[in-house]
Simulated scan of single mutants.
Amino acid sequence: MRQRASLPFLAAGLLVIAGPVAAQQGGDLLGALSGALGDAPAGSDAAASLSGRLLQLIALITVLSLAPGLLIVTTSFTRFVIVLSILRSAMGLNQTPPNIVLTAMALFLTFFVMQPVFEDAWEDGLQPLLDNAITEEQAVPRIAEPFRRFMTANTRPRDIALFQDIAARSSGEAGQEEEEAGPQEPGWRELVPAFMISELRRAFSIGFLIYLPFVAIDLIVASILMAAGMMMLPPVLISLPFKVIFFVLIDGWYMLAGSLLESYLPIAGAAGAG
C-alpha cells in the first residue's frame, strides 16, 4: 500500500526532473516521426501507425503543458494557497513566509488530500493503460472519473445549477425538457467553473475568520497608542510582534493545517472509496 501510495509523488518527481530532457527528445522524435510519415506510402498500415504515434506525442506534450492549470482547477490547491496568503496579510508580514514556501506548503497539502483520488485514477485508468489492458479512449474517462467525484462532492449544488442554467440557455435548449428529465449530472463545462467559485467562496470565508483576531489586536494596540498620545508611532509596527507571538502560542500552523485538511478528508476518502 505504501509503495502504491508513493506512485503519484514518484511520477510528479520524474516529470519535474525529466521535463527539459523529455521536451528536447520529444522535439527530435516529432521531427523523426514527421519525416517517416512523409516517406510512408499513403493509406498504408505504416502510415496509420505513425500517424497514431504522432497524435499520441502531441497529446502528451499538450497534457504536460496544461498540467499546472489542471492542478489548480481540479484539486484543493486553490483553497489552500488563498487561505495561506490571507493569513500572511492578516499578520502584516509582507514577504514572510515567502511565496515559494506558501506555494510548496499548499502543494503538499494538496497531495495529502488528493492521494485517494490519485490512487483511484492510477489503478482504474493509468496502470491498465500502461499494461495495454485498455485503450486510450477507455483510459481517459476512467482517469477523469475520480476527479469528477471529488469536485462534485466539494461543489455547491447552487453553483452547478447556475452554470447548467446558463449553458442550457446559451445552447437554446428548452427549460421544459430539463424539468421533465430532472437534475442531470454536470459536464466538465459546468463542473470546473462551479468548483472554482465554490472553492473561492470557502477560501474567503475561512480568510475572514482568520482576519478577525488579528484585526482585534490591531485595534487594541491602536487604542493604547492613542491613549498614550503616541500619534506618530505606526500601530502596525507595535502590533506585529504581538500577532506573531499570538499565532505561535495558539499553535496556529497546527490548527490551520488540521482544519483545512479535515474540511476535505471525509469527502476525499469517500470519493476514493467510490
Results as ranks from 00 to 15, higher is better:
Asp28Tyr: 00
Gly207Pro: 10
Arg2Pro: 05
Arg202Ile: 09
Gly272Phe: 04
Leu14Asp: 06
Arg201Ala: 15
Pro98Tyr: 09
Pro241Asp: 04
Ala121Tyr: 01
Gly69Phe: 03
Gly175Ser: 04
Gln184Ser: 11
Ala40Ser: 10
Leu212Val: 14
Lys243Trp: 15
Gln164Asp: 04
Ser89Ile: 12
Ser239Asp: 12
Ser259Pro: 01
Gly125Tyr: 07
Pro98Asn: 13
Trp122Met: 05
Ser171Arg: 15
Leu240Gly: 00
Leu109Asn: 02
Tyr254Trp: 12
Gln184Asp: 14
Leu233Gly: 06
Gly258Gln: 11
Arg169Phe: 06
Glu137Cys: 07
Leu33Trp: 01
Ser65Arg: 07
Trp253Leu: 15
Arg4Asn: 05
Gly252Asp: 05
Ser89Gly: 15
Asp45Cys: 07
Pro8Leu: 07
Ala106Glu: 03
Ser263Tyr: 11
Ile166Cys: 05
Gly27Gln: 02
Val244Tyr: 06
Leu191Ser: 08
Leu237Lys: 03
Ala47Cys: 08
Gly27Ser: 11
Gln127Ser: 14
Ala174Leu: 13
Leu87Phe: 09
Ile72Leu: 14
Phe77Leu: 15
Leu30Phe: 03
Pro97Asn: 10
Glu190His: 05
Arg142Ser: 07
Ala32Pro: 01
Gln127Thr: 08
Gly27Thr: 02
Gln25Thr: 01
Val113Asn: 03
Asp45Glu: 15
Phe112Cys: 15
Leu87Lys: 06
Ser170Pro: 00
Arg202Tyr: 13
